[in-house]
Design a protein around this nucleic acid. Structure first.
Lengths: 248, 248
DNA sequence: CGTAACCTTGATTAAGATCAATTCTCGTGG
DNA sequence: CCACGAGAATTGATCTTAATCAAGGTTACG
């Protein structure tokens, strides 16, 4: 399947480039599709370039010596990842000495991506202030997310972290729905009081810095307090106020 | 005390700007000095612009509802911080609605800083690809640091985190020494097998995601294993190999 | 040399991890 | 349409790490 221009324009980073630049990026980028469980890259691998997600979900994670996993980020449609080495260790990238900073695995079937090679891309970047500003915005948003991630893990117990996650997912999924209504004209409910877990409970636990048993118990606690109701992948929010009060 | 051009050039971000740009930045930036314990900004405060450290040390931290503190970053000479809102929430900055993302406190006396107002700065940024690239590099380095920070906190116990910190400080202080020899021609020992703690043990504990009692016990454990020797602020490294093996 | 800030050490507690045993869910083939 | 089996999730019992609470010791500095 060939790369479409519209796919590229849906990537936030590239959304405002001119046709000429889009053409260039199309010409040297590779289109790659992954199934659930397939690896995009390991953190031991030589750096090849960054990825953009056209459609699907990718988890970025680290593994400890003992085999424990922690998910740093869940990336979705329109997101970009693995760009850090381009700016952080530019020299190393040019000399093929850089490595990927994390592991990346597809967690949806048919996860559809573009791989953008670093070297060719750098030339476009140097001539496009617009693109630089987009990258600055992207990296800043990521810094903000990592910041609150650290805050959660170091300053909040698991009940609070889970409450925060449910609320932020509710927000994200609402925005997602609003976007679909706007772009595709779909008739979707504007506002709902539930979230649908987009990832497995195992992955959620790993993202919250805990393990699945503890997550299970914590979900039950929130349910026992009549704050949420869990039906497999769907979590109904019955008491927003209390959930917000837990999440700080 | 007036701002000197050489002070500005020592800030990594501004090191390669032309004289004209340096003059502009000088003209609208404010020179501010803080003593130990003084606050640069709180995370509840309206955003005024970012800071550069000419000399001194600043801790960036968050506080939980219960009053526990976690130090995200320790910033030193030449470092910049608080730039994220400029790129992350540009609109909000222009309308004076943005807030600082963390709290910042000086932890050295006579911490000497420049405060750069966001609005005027944005105009220079838009016309300088060079400056954009510098920022991309700065933010990427910070992302990398936050990444390993999360990794440490979620995947390593305190002994490992402490070992890692000692080694990274040893590296940083060695580079610092090398720089001073080069720039000022000082006669310093090129290589030493100790580190001098630049921050209080309380702050170190908070940075490692623990409390001072646990830090104290962990230092003692490493000392009992004959890996380090602690003399108040100086930590002698007696067994690099073991320290490295602990730090992953 | 006195006092406050900093640090160490000990005893106890608590949150969450680990280990182990079921149970639930869902896709596949008979 | 049902039975089977595998992976996912739940639940319980126990263990571990590090936090909390409490007391005493050190250091630095006016």
């Amino acid at each position: 399947m060939a790369l479409k221009e519209s796919d590229i324009r849906n990537i936030f980073l590239f959304s405002e480039l001119d046709n000429n630049e889009i053409e260039k990026i199309k010409s040297f980028s590779r289109h790659k599709t992954f199934n659930k469980g397939e690896i995009l890259f390991f953190d031991t691998e030589p750096y090849q370039g960054f990825y953009c997600i056209i459609e699907g979900t990718v988890k970025l994670y680290k593994i400890s010596k003992e085999g424990r996993e922690h998910i740093m980020h869940i990336m979705k449609d329109g997101d970009t990842f693995g760009e850090v080495p381009v700016f952080e260790n530019y020299e190393a990238v040019l000399r093929d000495l850089a490595k990927y900073p994390v592991n990346a695995m597809a967690i949806d079937d048919n996860t559809n991506t573009i791989q953008v090679p670093a070297k060719q891309f750098l030339e476009i970047l140097r001539n496009s202030n617009e693109l630089c500003m987009k990258f600055l915005s992207t990296l800043s948003k990521r810094l903000k997310i990592l910041n609150s991630h650290i805050q959660g893990i170091t300053l909040q117990d698991i009940k609070k972290r889970l409450s925060g996650y449910i609320l932020s997912e509710h927000k994200r999924q609402s925005e997602e729905r609003a976007k679909k209504i706007k772009v595709k004209g779909l008739k979707l409910p504007v506002s709902v009081n539930y979230i649908d877990l987009a990832i497995s409970k195992n992955d959620l636990a790993s993202h919250l810095g805990t393990i699945i048993e503890t997550l299970s118990r914590t979900l039950k606690k929130l349910q026992d307090e009549d704050i949420i109701e869990v039906n497999s992948k769907r979590i109904l929010i019955k008491n927003f106020k209390k959930l917000i009060s837990y999440s700080d």
